[in-house]
C-alpha cells in the first residue's frame, strides 16, 4: 500500500509523490503541495479531523480526506 500523509507522525517529514484523487489534487496543487516537494506533519487538531502540515515556510490545515490523498515516500 502507498504511504500517505496520515502515516506521518508529528514532526516527521516526507516527499510528495503524487495524489490519489484528481479533484483533491487540483486544490492541493494551488496551495503549493506539489510532487517532489517536502511536507512535514506538525500536529492533529485538538478535536481530530484536521491536520496541520508544513511546506517550506508555510503552514496549511487540511482535513483527513485531503491529507489521505497526498501520497508520499
Amino acid at each position: 500500500m502507498d504511504k500517505n500523509v496520515l502515516h506521518l507522525k508529528n514532526g516527521e517529514e516526507a516527499t510528495v509523490v503524487r495524489f490519489a484523487d484528481h479533484g483533491m489534487a487540483c486544490k492541493l496543487l494551488t496551495i503549493g503541495i506539489i510532487p517532489d516537494s517536502r511536507i512535514k506533519m506538525i500536529r492533529k487538531a485538538p478535536f481530530g479531523g484536521a491536520y496541520c502540515l508544513k511546506l517550506g515556510n508555510t503552514f496549511v490545515a487540511v482535513r483527513a480526506d485531503e491529507a489521505r490523498s497526498i501520497i508520499i515516500k
Binding site: K27, A50, F59, V60, V62, R63
Partner: peptide
C-alpha cells in the same frame, strides 16, 4: 458538492 478545509495558517 465536495467540501474542503484547506486553509493556510499564516505566520
Amino acid at each position: 458538492e465536495k467540501s474542503f478545509l484547506m486553509i493556510e495558517l499564516p505566520q
